[in-house]
């Protein structure tokens, strides 16, 4: 079964700890202090907390069934992982043309331009049992469940 990340915006308090932990998870050292203070290229979070007034929620790639980024990608860097159903970006193939960013209906792909220009997006934390944003949300506002 494909696991999906669900958002419970009524409990998102906007602390952005998910962004912090996402950044650390996708850093080279995976050490929170080094990731923030010493790494180049500076890692960026792949989850974004959207806020307006007291409403906030953490948004990351929805791994759409009919993902437009898959079709838009000119190099075939975007691909779907057969096992998990996740949409992933092969950073070796990515040339940073930003077509995926143009077509993403959720605006959850960001530009990583500090090193080699690549599209940066949620990979559901490959290798982790539970994505780190879900694991570390202090108020369980992001949950990882079997697809409903």
């Amino acid at each position: 079964m494909v696991k999906r990340i669900y958002i419970r915006e009524e409990y998102c308090m906007g602390c952005r700890l998910c962004e912090v932990h996402c950044l650390v998870q996708h850093s080279k050292t995976k050490n929170i202090i080094k990731a923030y203070k010493g790494e180049y290229p500076k890692p960026i979070p792949r989850i974004i907390v959207e806020e307006k007034g007291y409403v906030s929620f953490a948004l990351q790639c929805r791994h759409c069934e009919d993902a437009p980024c898959l079709e838009a990608c000119i190099t075939g860097a975007m691909y779907r992982d057969k096992k998990t159903g996740a949409v992933l970006c092969d950073e070796d193939k990515c040339i940073g043309c930003w077509m995926c960013i143009m077509v993403c209906p959720f605006g959850v792909i960001s530009r990583n331009i500090e090193g080699k220009k690549i599209a940066s997006k949620c990979d559901l934390c490959v290798g982790e049992e539970v994505p780190v944003c879900v694991k570390n949300c202090p108020n369980e506002a992001i949950v990882c469940e079997e697809e409903k």
């Binding site: 409990y11 108020n139 506002a141």
Partner: peptide
């Protein structure tokens, strides 16, 4: 902690499930 408050910014900090 989202307990003794009615501020919508703060009340959502207490997830009733938790």
């Amino acid at each position: 902690w989202g307990i003794a408050t009615q501020d919508p910014y703060l009340t959502k900090r207490l997830n009733p499930d938790i």
